[in-house]
Write a protein that binds this DNA or RNA. Structure first.
Length: 602
DNA sequence: CATTCAAGCGGT
DNA sequence: ACCGCTTGA
């Protein structure tokens, strides 16, 4: 029962940002290059360095000027700047190019980062096995075997040929799966190169941790397979920090508590000892891991779960006036808005929660959220500013903001899938083409005091929870590294949701037809929370505008339907019950948290 | 003055 | 809901 028959690949683009820039300016191919964001401060900070430049000792995190000292011929590309802020759109778009190829070839792809993907090849491998697909050494031009370092190409061929022979003749099929997996990855890497121009490396193994680990063994433009039978040997030489998740504090604690440097040394500890040292969950995860077992699934996910924009304001650049903060609220809001609009058009979903995060020069970090009522730069900017204003200790009459903000970001998440994104806004509002950059030179920041908002929120919308309960053996990484929590004495708006249960779709819509029927809204205060519906001229709580718009949209459809005498229900209605379900979750006092954290029970 | 920006996860 | 940790370009 301790065998995992999956075949997992981790595909990782080589110095991705550099390749993206080189694709645009091929004259720099083959030359030492780096990508930096900003440049006024010591030539900017390098976030990607190609292998030609690494040969000179240039590293990520260095300043551009330092790179020039080490390698005078290095060419430093600079990340595009919009509104005085680094903008990564170019790399996200290039990432989409890569994922189009992956998704076109495999069913089970997980976007692990902008340039990394896990692929579960188990089924694809099985198909090849079923048809006795023939393989030869020439099918593996860039494949290496973990645990066997080869100096020359002849040596590599020799090792690999033996591996192929052994796997095919052996009665043990365990490694043969990996041969097919390696073949598939060779193929898709070639396709990625042909269709996007980008080189990548890959790791092929029985689980994600091993795939990730061995991907790094041979780079760039190469792939590495690790036989399950070689895991012990490889782990004996693998420093703890090389394991995904143990690269920082957690790894240090493992090393210190258990007095080990290499993963293999952990094999001597019993499950009980590991669990006593680092906790039940993590101990279990680690115990299995050092034996080559790890069951974290490859989740089928191509889309981001959140979209955010942030910027640091170190030292003297800190935001210490309301004017500065207003400006940056707008700048960051614009970035998030543009990306959300694109996401809405492409993926038919809407973010429902806006989260503002900032670090003050007192070193405390603060995060506050509010519902997203509508997609607009000014809404995002105003909500953000409203939140930030709460932490201002200077008199509100002054322009001074204290303590100053040294880091600040806006994020959007909690996407509602299949949301009514057929540009309802475009259909019913006078403003057309919301997607165009609105050049509002003057911020029409009407001000409003902070006021309790209804903590609506949708609850999780059928994300791929994959509550896999394949018996008891599910080693998943747990906590075990933790710091003290700062008790942040903030006044928290408390939702006192007294929900009326409603069952019919009709009643659901009618509740949003006007304010009076919306639960938990106190009309007497803060008229700024209201907006006038362009359709019915009624005053509507901004939080409820999307639903209200949906109401009009549905109503419109209904009228159309009546006119055409069609008895076919418009497909758009499918999305309604989803929301209704969310309302129900709200009516239970059940928090999203307890839902997510609910354990499957042994 | 200074890696910076971004994304995901898990705990409380 | 909010926070800290981890990772990667």
């Amino acid at each position: 029962m301790n065998s995992d028959h999956r075949v997992i690949a981790l595909i990782d683009m080589d110095c991705f940002y550099v390749q993206v820039e080189q694709r645009l300016q091929p004259e720099f191919l083959g030359k030492p290059c780096g990508v930096a964001q900003y440049y006024t401060w010591k030539g900017g900070g390098l976030i990607a360095v190609n292998y030609e430049a690494r040969d000179f000792g240039v590293k990520r995190g260095m300043r551009g000027e330092q790179a020039k000292e080490l390698c005078p011929d290095v060419h430093v590309f600079h990340v595009q700047e919009v509104n005085g802020k680094a903008n990564l759109t170019r790399y996200r778009d290039a990432s989409a190019d890569v994922f189009r190829v992956l998704n076109g070839n495999f069913k089970l792809v997980e976007k692990a980062s902008i340039d990394e993907a896990y692929v579960d090849l188990t089924d694809d491998v099985q198909k090849l096995k079923d048809e006795n697909f023939p393989l030869a050494i020439n099918d593996f031009p860039t494949t290496h075997l973990a645990g066997f370092t080869t100096k020359t190409e002849d040596e590599r061929i020799e090792i690999l040929s033996k591996w192929l022979k052994d796997c095919q003749s052996d009665d043990e099929q365990r490694n043969l799966d990996l041969v097919f997996g390696a073949y598939l990855v060779e193929q898709v890497r070639k396709k990625i190169k042909d269709e996007t121009g980008f080189f990548c490396s890959a790791g092929i193994a029985r689980n994600k941790i091993l795939a990730k680990l061995c991907c790094g063994f041979n780079k760039p433009k190469k792939q590495t397979v690790i036989n399950q039978t070689d895991v012990d040997h490889v782990f004996d030489q693998t420093p703890i920090q090389k394991i995904q998740g143990l690269g920082a504090k957690a790894g240090d604690r493992v090393m210190e508590l258990l007095q080990v440097e290499y993963v293999g040394q952990l094999r001597k500890y019993t499950l009980d000892v590991l669990q006593a040292s680092i906790g039940e969950k993590d101990g279990y995860w680690l115990y299995n891991l050092v034996r080559g077992i790890e069951t974290a699934p490859v989740n089928s996910r191509n889309l981001y779960k959140s979209i955010s924009a942030s910027k640091n304001f170190p030292g003297k650049t800190s935001l210490d006036t309301l004017d500065k903060i207003r400006t940056w609220c707008h700048n960051l809001a614009e970035d998030v808005f543009n990306r959300l609009e694109k996401d809405r058009a492409e993926n038919k979903r809407r973010a429902k929660l806006l989260t503002v995060t900032c670090t003050l020069n007192t070193n405390e970090t603060i995060a506050r959220s509010c519902p997203i009522s509508e997609y607009s730069i000014d809404r995002f900017a105003n909500d953000t500013f409203r939140i930030l204003k709460q932490f201002n200790k200077s008199p509100s009459s002054s322009n001074i903001y204290t303590p100053a903000i040294i880091s600040f970001g806006i994020g959007a998440g909690k996407f509602l899938e299949n949301a009514n994104t057929k540009s309802i806004v475009d259909l019913f509002s006078k403003q057309t083409t919301k997607t165009e950059t609105i050049k509002s030179t003057e911020n029409t920041t009407r001000w409003q005091e902070y006021e309790d908002y209804d903590d609506d929120d949708d609850g999780s919308n059928s994300e791929d929870k994959i509550l896999q309960k394949p018996t008891a053996t599910v080693p998943i990484q747990g906590d075990f590294f933790r710091k003290f929590q700062k008790t942040d004495e903030q006044i928290k708006p408390q939702p006192k949701s007294e929900m009326k249960t409603t069952s019919s779709i009709v009643s659901f819509f009618s509740r949003y037809a006007s304010n009076e029927n919306i639960p938990n809204c106190s009309p007497e205060k803060s008229s700024e929370h209201y907006t006038t519906c362009s359709k019915c001229q009624k005053s509507i709580l901004v939080w409820n505008m999307p639903e209200h718009e949906d109401f009009h949209y549905a109503h419109e459809l209904q009228m159309e339907e009546n006119r055409s005498n069609s008895m076919i229900a418009p497909p758009i209605k499918i999305s309604k019950p989803v929301k209704r379900k969310n309302e129900k979750q709200k009516s239970n006092i059940q928090t999203l948290d307890s839902f997510v954290n609910k354990k499957p029970k042994s």
